[in-house]
Each structure stands twice: as C-alpha cells, then as structure tokens.
C-alpha cells in the first residue's frame, strides 16, 4: 500500500514538474532562437567564399525524461505507435544543443556556422532504466 502511494506521488510530481519544465524550456528555446536567428547554419562541407577566419564551435546537452512520461512511453511500447513523450524530449535536446553551438558562434562574432553535424546517443544507460538519458551533441565551423 505504501509502495503504491509512493508510486502515485512520483507520478504526480513527474507530471507536474515535467510539464512545467517542458513549457518553460520551449519558451526559452523560442526566445533564444529568435535572438540568434541572424546566424545561419548549413551542412555543406566546402568552404563558402568571402570569409576570412574560422573557429570550431560545439554545443551539447544531456537531458532526462520525467517519471510520468517514462511510464506513458512504457505503455506505448506494449501497443506500439507513435511515442510523443520521447519525440518532444529529443526535439528539446536537439534545439538546445544547436542553440549552444550558435551561442559560441555568436561569441566569436561569426555570421554563419558551416557543416553542422548532430550526434544523438543514449549515454550512461543503465540496465534498470528504459531510457536513462539522452545526449545531443552539435558541432560545426563558425565563419566570419
């Protein structure tokens, strides 16, 4: 009975704070993306003409899903179908990593980040967890 109570409490905490975190994060992502919209990105390997210096820039983030969504995702894996809980988590991580990379480029006074590569990996996964946490790493060359 106590175990079940703890489980319900964790679910409620996970739902409430997870939702709040996510809304805040999306809001902050949008604001920062607009502020850095003048820095363009591309995925081309060749050096575009008209730039005089380059710097290597990176951004990474490790993000974790909340208790409630993890349970929802677990049920989804029984019936199959689209797992929105993970889709939004990965989207947040990716946008955050790209933004951090752009912030570094901005600090270098760059106007473009060329050859952006994004790498996603579930690092530090342990056996007990479905999906512990996820890392997104973005890197590219800032040009000015």
């Amino acid at each position: 009975m106590l175990g079940f109570g703890v489980f319900l409490a964790l679910l409620a905490i996970g739902y409430y704070f997870g939702k709040k975190n996510e809304t805040n994060h999306f809001r902050s992502l949008e604001r920062r993306e607009q502020a850095l919209a003048h820095i363009t990105t591309n995925t081309l390997k060749t050096l575009p003409a008209g730039y005089n210096s380059s710097a290597f820039v990176t951004g990474n983030v490790v993000i974790s899903i909340d208790y409630f969504k993890r349970l929802m995702a677990f049920f989804r894996t029984i019936f199959g179908g689209r797992i929105n809980a993970y889709a939004s988590l990965i989207e947040r991580a990716r946008r955050e990593a790209i933004l951090r990379m752009k912030e570094q480029a901005h600090a270098n006074n760059a106007s473009m980040v060329a050859n952006v590569r994004i790498e996603t990996s579930s690092v530090f996964q342990n056996a007990q967890q479905q999906l512990g946490s996820l890392e997104v790493y973005a890197y590219g060359t800032a040009l000015k």
């Binding site: 964790l10 996970g14 490790v62 974790s64 899903i65 909340d66 208790y67 988590l89 530090f124 790493y137």
Partner: peptide
Amino acid sequence: AGLKNIVGGELRGYTELLT
C-alpha cells in the same frame, strides 16, 4: 541524476562531464 529522472530536464553534471 536519479532525482532528475523523476522530474525530467537537463542533467548538468553529465553535460559538463561530456564536455
């Protein structure tokens, strides 16, 4: 990180470790 796994969000310690 175990605590963060309940509420979700960024695991800053891991982000720094990987950096």
